[in-house]
Design a protein around this nucleic acid. Structure first.
Length: 397
DNA sequence: CTTCCACCGGAAGTACCGGTAA
DNA sequence: TTACCGGTACTTCCGGTGGAAG
């Protein structure tokens, strides 16, 4: 009997999935389509810089700029994958390493990942960085090919650790006898290059490629292209696509955001057992994406960071903003309830900066003359309830 | 013009953890 | 086993500072 109920649920689920999505993967942020509309110029540029690799010639380094969701990563990987498969035909030795330095955010892990892309087995801890580097060099030279290293979101890495690693990588060819390395740096932050060592800047920027934001029409093309593959016929309308495109265009033309909206809207429609995706679903999706992000970020915060955030939330509810000193006092009260020792104010000040970087609070340094220098901390109206929810959930009560 | 608040944020160092190599 | 490595999460110390108040 219970089996019948189960079958019913499973069938309902399966039939429902069939109704909305045909192939949801096509909307996944990491999926790279065969066609990248409105990026022909960039594909040509990057491909023509890289093709010499097939003849065993080291391509120039490339620096790629563009805001989030302008197709930088997709285009780069698209070209590299294409070349890698052609390399087999031409029997030339060509490989690439892709590292997102925001996710892989320490020196050791970046080098380890580069080395792994050549098939090396590198432990995730225990070795000296210099040792991993040495093995990588050795492996390169015995392989004797062209290795392209993609460093995605390098601005994040450089902000935290400086440009020493970048400098080393730009000089790596001097240490190699038979192999050659090219670098591709990808950044969202246009100003980032200005703070770079001039030698690194000139070397990394041998070629520069800019990815302008998409406008609403271009986003529509992209979305329509993908929607045709991802959804079943009749589920999605041009009207809904236009709405997603318009929302994303408002946010500097972020295609990833537009695709997320479409995917989540589809999931909501599916959940509601609807036959079509509607504009109401997209609106709901925008809310859920925002809510989900903050919930997830807060859930993974260390204990003391949660308490600091809670202290700020309380103060912001009371008077609209908080200063570092007030936050610290409130935080100390909260810690006592949990019978833990409070951290120092120096550390709490750092945690506030971290919360700012995560986008949970806005902290700006202000000088109030006679009343000293401090940080004015605020929480945007649109996420404060979501933050309170998340804190209640993860701190109990 | 000077004072001085209430912090800022750099630098150096400590403790601990999970790991490797010999 | 021992020496060492890098990463995280802190502490301690301290010089630095924009601008309202006096």
């Amino acid at each position: 009997m219970s089996k019948d109920i189960l079958d019913e649920i499973i069938e309902a689920r399966l039939s429902r999935r069939h109704r909305i999505f045909f192939d949801k993967e096509k909307l996944h942020p990491d999926y790279i389509p065969e066609k990248l509309p409105h990026r022909e110029d960039q594909i040509k540029r990057i491909a023509s810089v890289l093709v010499p690799a097939l003849e065993g010639i080291r391509p120039n380094n490339i620096l790629i700029y563009g805001l989030t969701g302008t197709g930088k990563t997709a285009v780069t990987l698209f070209v590299l994958r294409g070349l890698e498969s052609r390399a087999k035909v031409h029997s030339s030795r060509f490989r690439y390493a892709y590292v997102n330095t925001r996710k892989t955010d320490t020196t050791y892990r970046v080098i380890a990942e580069i080395a792994r892309s050549l098939g090396l087995r590198v432990p995730y801890t225990g070795l000296a960085i210099a040792e991993v580097y040495r093995r990588y060099i050795e492996a390169l030279d015995s392989w004797r090919g062209i290795h392209v290293i993609v460093l995605d979101e390098i601005d994040y890495y450089v902000k935290r650790h400086g440009d020493d690693l970048l400098y080393k990588l730009t000089r790596i060819n001097e240490e190699l006898k038979y192999a050659r390395v090219s670098l591709i740096g990808i950044t969202n932050d246009i100003n980032f290059v200005e703070n770079l060592d001039p030698r690194v800047r000139s070397s990394l920027g041998e070629e520069e490629v800019v990815f302008p934001p998409y406008n609403a029409e271009q986003l529509e093309d992209i979305l329509w292209d993908r929607a045709k593959q991802a959804f079943n016929p009749g589920v999605i309308s041009l009207e809904v696509i236009k709405y997603c495109a318009a929302l994303a265009a408002r946010e500097h033309g972020d295609a990833r955001r537009a695709l997320d909206l479409l995917r989540v809207a589809g999931e909501i429609a599916e959940r509601e057992n609807a036959e079509k995706v509607t504009i109401a679903h997209v609106k709901q999706a925008a809310l859920e994406i925002e809510y989900g992000k903050t919930q997830q970020v807060i859930a993974t915060l260390p204990f003391h960071a949660k308490l600091v955030l809670k202290a700020i939330a309380i103060l912001v509810r009371e008077k609209g903003y908080a200063t570092t000193g007030e936050t610290y006092e409130m935080y100390k009260k909260l810690v006592r309830r949990y019978r833990y020792d409070p951290l120092t104010q120096r550390r709490v000040s750092e945690i506030i900066n971290e919360l700012d970087m995560l986008g949970l609070v806005n902290a700006i340094v202000v000088n109030r003359g006679r009343y000293g220098k401090t940080k004015m901390i605020r929480i945007s109206e649109s996420i404060i309830t979501s933050i309170e929810d998340a804190l209640r959930r993860s701190l109990g009560e």
